[in-house]
């Protein structure tokens, strides 16, 4: 109820400022910095997860007690994100990277190299 009666939505403003800062940080990391590509990817994905958390907890009232939903929303959202990770990482694991384990033995290895070249433009 505390937030409910406040006239200035402090939480929202903090969340908004944070999300702008994080977006700019990610853009800088990707476009302005000279970090190695793998680091950039890992870094900006982490920033994205933090931003998603800001939306969920500061904007979407996921944990507010008035809802009387108990643990259900965050439980389902948590599993949703776990599943998202399984689907994306699992697909890459089986469909893209899974062929790496016998490079050079057949044409799979060269195919992989081609793919990397395509991405490198």
């Amino acid at each position: 109820m505390a937030e409910h009666s406040k006239s200035i939505p402090v939480q929202h403003i903090i969340g908004f400022v944070l999300s702008i800062v994080l977006t700019l940080l990610a853009a800088w990391a990707a476009l302005g910095s000279n970090l190695p590509v793998k680091w950039i990817i890992a870094g900006i994905l982490t920033l994205a997860v933090i931003q998603a958390g800001i939306q969920l907890f500061m904007f979407m009232h996921m944990t507010e007690s008035e809802s009387r939903n108990g643990h259900v929303p965050w439980n389902m959202m948590f599993h949703g994100f776990v599943l998202a990770a399984i689907i994306v990482a699992g697909s890459l694991f089986t469909m893209s990277w899974g062929f790496d384990h016998h490079p050079g033995k057949d044409d799979m290895g060269t195919h992989q190299e081609e793919e990397q070249q395509h991405g490198g433009h």
Binding site: M76, H79, A84, V88, S91, G119
Partner: peptide
């Protein structure tokens, strides 16, 4: 909320397709 959890999966499937077809 449960529907949104399903939506996460829906979009992540699209992300997975995008990632695999990247390049």
């Amino acid at each position: 909320w449960i529907f949104l959890a399903a939506e996460i999966v829906l979009f992540s499937t699209l992300f997975a397709t995008y990632a695999v077809l990247f390049g």
